[in-house]
């Protein structure tokens, strides 16, 4: 933290910092996982339901016995958009415009929204197979970004 006071909700090490999440108690294992290059998705011990985003209990059977199961990093694009303008988010994303943002179905049975990179955004398509790698936004937070795989 700079002595001039970098806002706590902004990532360090970026010229224009990206917004950081608040690490809520039930999301701790997810964020611990992304730092190690893993996607950990909640799975209910009671009924086996998998859910993203992290919740305090299973949305199906209400059990609070949730494991944080290692998910495959690969998935399939369910839908996508090409972001051409930054609105209601940090200007840090301006350097990345235009970029593809997709809803990706992971083989663990959940849908996650993330950027698709290493490909021209116009080449992204529904059904495209993608795999996650991770961008470290701070020493506490890494977010998945996906790239096409054959």
């Amino acid at each position: 933290m700079s002595k001039f006071g970098v806002s706590a909700d902004h990532a360090e090490g970026h010229e224009r910092p990206k917004p950081l999440p608040e690490i809520t108690p039930f999301a701790q294992e997810f964020w611990e996982g992304t730092k190690r290059g893993e996607l950990r998705i909640q799975r209910c011990k009671g009924c086996g339901h998998s859910q993203w985003i992290p919740r305090p209990n299973c949305e199906e059977c209400s059990s609070r016995e949730l494991t944080s199961e290692l998910s495959s990093l690969s998935g399939v694009v369910y839908s996508f958009t090409i972001i051409r303008q930054v609105v209601m988010n940090s200007s840090a994303f301006e350097a990345e415009l235009p970029f593809a943002l997709a809803a990706i179905e992971l083989s663990s049975g959940v849908r996650l929204i993330a950027q698709v990179v290493d490909v021209e955004p116009e080449k992204v398509s529904i059904g495209m197979k993608v795999e996650a790698s991770f961008e470290h936004l701070s020493d506490k937070v890494a977010v998945p970004k996906f790239h096409p795989i054959v």
Partner: peptide, 25 residues
């Protein structure tokens, strides 16, 4: 909370991005 925690850091630009995903589909 999901906008703060799982959307903004991931590059989602508010409801316009989410409706764009719906519209594309």
């Amino acid at each position: 909370e999901h906008r703060r925690d799982y959307e903004k850091p991931f590059g989602v630009m508010g409801p316009t991005s989410l409706f764009a995903l719906v519209m594309r589909r």
